[in-house]
Nucleic acid binder design. Structure first.
Lengths: 188, 188
DNA sequence: GGGATTACAGACCGACTGTCGGTCTAGAAA
DNA sequence: TTTCTAGACCGACAGTCGGTCTGTAATCCC
């Protein structure tokens, strides 16, 4: 069970990479399975053997993307001891990452509509939101009963400015605005 | 040229009402034009005579919904002189309104993916965002160069807690969390 | 070696969106 | 009153797309 498994994994990876590019470039709706098949040189049967459907393919793409983002943010935060400083560093890293059209389109725009808000939320919980909430808790700046909700609101606010930057806003201004915003929210 | 125009307008309204309900219940993707036709008793040709396509129909639904929301929020704010208090009242009104599944699904979840983020943003600008930004400016609590970005972040944060409430979160907690959040952001 | 499993192939199906030529009727023009 | 026009409405049809199903070849395990 080696050559076969490897080949399967390679095929999955290939499809995933192509689908990621297409979903990011055209969005979910305007990306047809047909196009994925053409660009990957795969047959219908093969694709449906590996992925249950278009939704499942998108979900796999999203999962991979979120995972990659998680790794990068963790790297940006590594070594910073002060919780507030770590939170700030993570937030700024996320703003910069979200400038990437792939992340922007897939994670922030299409994901909620395609997966449904519930599933999207569940996935966010496992990645960016989970990290943010833990960091916020660690700062102790927000009353315990509000930590969860404030973490949600903060993440939404940060995502929003990431989207603005991605749309062509000024990065420097956005970053200092985010810092100022964080400063205000984190002060008791 | 009166009876004809009236009939046309009545048809448009009827379709709009039915489409609004269906889009809210099933989401954009899972609502077929076919179903809209069946429920409205209209023919394909008639519908496409009034609306250029499924996208255009959704956009009309969205516009009507946003407009209704705008009116309700304006009503909630009317008569409040203190800008900060008005902002708070408007925000809370919006949180409550967003509990409505119609608004939740159409405005907050599907709209960005269907219209594209740019057009969605442009429409928000004309409604909720425009009001929020003006209110924030009036409070004078935020440095001028940050007003725009902070308004964006605030609206995103408020929308987020509205979504949480709609998902089944505790309304009272969410509302006090939003108030606390606003208090922090609005204090210099 | 032989059955079981897995990767892959592609014909096919049903559902859906959008188009197009055409009908009908209200109201303006003659 | 008769004619003409514009807009409301109709429904057959084409094209696309997501998903299914049956079949084949390669690989694995006994």
């Amino acid at each position: 069970m080696n050559l076969k498994a490897e080949r399967g994994a390679a095929t999955r990876d290939k499809v995933l990479a192509i689908a990621t590019r297409l979903f990011a470039e055209r969005g979910y709706d305007d990306t047809s399975i047909e196009t994925v098949l053409q660009e990957s040189g795969l047959s219908r049967g093969a694709l449906y053997h590996h992925y249950a459907g278009k939704d499942a393919l998108f979900e796999a793409v999203l999962e991979a993307t979120e995972s990659a983002v998680g790794v990068k943010i963790a790297k940006a935060v590594r070594g910073i001891d002060d919780p507030a400083a770590a939170l700030r560093a993570g937030a700024l890293a996320w703003v910069r990452l979200a400038g990437d059209p792939v992340i922007r389109r897939i994670v922030l725009i299409d994901a909620p509509a395609v997966l449904g808000w519930e599933s999207w939320r569940a996935m966010e919980e496992r990645y960016s939101f989970g990290m943010l909430k833990a960091a916020l808790q660690a700062t102790g700046a927000v009353p315990d009963e509000f930590v969860d909700l404030h973490a949600h609101m903060l993440l939404a606010a940060i995502n929003e400015s990431a989207l603005l930057v991605a749309r062509g806003g000024d990065t420097a201004t956005a970053e200092s605005a985010v810092e100022e915003f964080l400063r205000r929210v984190l002060r008791p």
